[in-house]
Design a protein around this nucleic acid. Structure first.
Length: 402
DNA sequence: TCTGGGGTCCTAGGACCC
DNA sequence: TCTGGGGTCCTAGGACCC
């Protein structure tokens, strides 16, 4: 298989959008975000400023940096424009995040040229049409392409030739931290075992890595280190969750304040859910305490809902159960995450029913078609309980699960 | 380094079902 | 009455990524 996978990654994305939109920022160190650095331009990185760094430390490192508040809408718009160019480049695009995607350009040789030519043209287009710098890694696998783009940054292009020798020579000298999926914890475990480079991981063998990191992570890491990565570029992956969270600072908050924040979070995320046409079945409450330890509490519905009041009710119930914990430890972050997403809206089926058995049979058939046989059993129970005057068959989206 | 906001995936125990 | 194996779903935690 030839090198046809492109990993396209926008450089210092948020900061680059700010520099694009305000010429006065070009060539200057730019920090996006106040309390925490969301993005730093390469001019700021030269002074040691990094993402996720505290704002105060960043300003100490680079006092003359321009600090700008984030403009998420501008970044979303820029991302959409860039992804449109991606999709115009290849039919097979897998978004990884707001500023990053894999493109498979296999089979485009005759129309568009060799992968390195496609990649060069993609960079030029994003630069001239959107005004943003893009780095592209090209390789035979996702893992190699991702590592290549990381090494080529900023504003670069790196092609890994597709013969086994070149790939191994490229991969093996690199530090284990370069592997996509090895973070601080895993790196520390590996270093403690004397494993520092990807080549050493490959030589260590699968059993050793499984013993160090667990079954899945160990196998996965061994496969990547030995350059086995058959993962295809997959277009149209569906999102699995949608959430909203808010840091509260160190100040103590009253229950009323916390409830107000919770309500705002639920409303914000439900607005996004409605725009996306999604329903959810599970509500996760995310908490971070005064000592920055985290906890989650979740609750599932039998059927999906897109009702704000339902989600809010569930979230409040979860929060109430945590009140003693919060009183004891303090609260520094609260978040809501919705999972088990469906595009099913949990809609009620409005059916005529006048008491005649034939009409009821017809209604039951419709319910069976739409919701499956179990819905009939539940509805029959309700029908027996409430009696034949019931005007519609409820689907009870608000009923908690087990 | 006193810490944002948005995600993904995996593990593991317990309930429950066949 | 006791026992087994296999599967799904729910909840909570954790590592990791941008």
């Amino acid at each position: 298989l030839p090198s046809t996978i492109l990993h396209a990654d926008l450089d210092a994305f948020f900061a680059s959008v700010e520099q694009r939109d305000d010429p006065a920022l070009r060539g200057r160190p730019v920090i996006v975000g106040g309390g925490v650095v969301l993005a730093a331009s390469y001019e700021a990185r030269a002074f040691g400023v990094r993402g996720a760094m505290g704002g105060r430390r960043a300003r100490t490192l680079c006092p003359h940096a321009v600090v700008v508040p984030p403009r998420m809408k501008a970044y979303s718009a820029a991302s959409r424009a860039v992804f449109a160019v991606f999709r115009d480049t290849s039919p097979l695009v897998e978004g990884v995040s707001i500023d990053e995607a894999f493109l498979d350009v296999r089979g485009l040789e005759r129309i568009a040229g060799a992968p390195h030519e496609i990649a060069a043209r993609l960079r030029a287009r994003v630069r001239t049409e959107i005004g943003l710098p893009l780095t592209v890694g090209v390789a035979r696998t996702k893992h190699l392409a991702k590592i290549a783009s990381g090494l080529a940054k900023p504003d670069g292009l790196l092609v890994v030739a597709d013969d086994p020798r070149s790939e191994r020579d490229f991969l093996h000298p690199l530090a284990v931290e370069r592997i996509w999926g090895v973070g601080p914890k895993s790196a520390a475990v590996l270093h403690a075992a004397g494993l520092n480079t990807i080549g050493e991981l490959a030589a260590a063998g699968e059993d050793v890595l499984v013993a160090l990191l667990g079954r899945h992570a160990g196998r996965h890491l061994h496969r990547l280190a030995t350059n086995h990565d058959p993962r295809p570029v997959r277009a149209g992956r569906r999102r699995r969750s949608m959430g909203s969270q808010s840091a509260l600072g160190r100040r103590a908050r009253s229950e009323a304040e916390i409830d107000a924040v919770l309500m705002a979070l639920v409303e914000r995320v439900m607005r996004r859910m409605r725009r996306a046409g999604l329903g959810c079945r599970t509500v996760v409450l995310r908490l971070r305490f005064g000592d920055y330890a985290r906890a989650t509490r979740s609750s599932s519905l039998r059927r999906a809902t897109r009702r704000t009041d339902t989600v809010l009710g569930l979230a409040r119930g979860l929060l109430a159960a945590c009140a003693p914990l919060i009183a004891e430890r303090g609260l520094t972050l609260i978040g809501i995450s919705l999972t088990s997403l469906t595009d099913d809206d949990g809609a009620q089926l409005e059916l005529p029913f006048d008491g005649r058995p034939a009409v009821l049979d017809d209604a039951l058939d419709q319910v069976r078609d739409r919701f499956g046989a179990n819905a009939i059993r539940r509805a029959a129970l309700v029908h027996r309980t409430i009696g034949p005057a019931m005007p519609t068959l409820p689907d009870r989206p608000d009923e908690p699960g087990r």
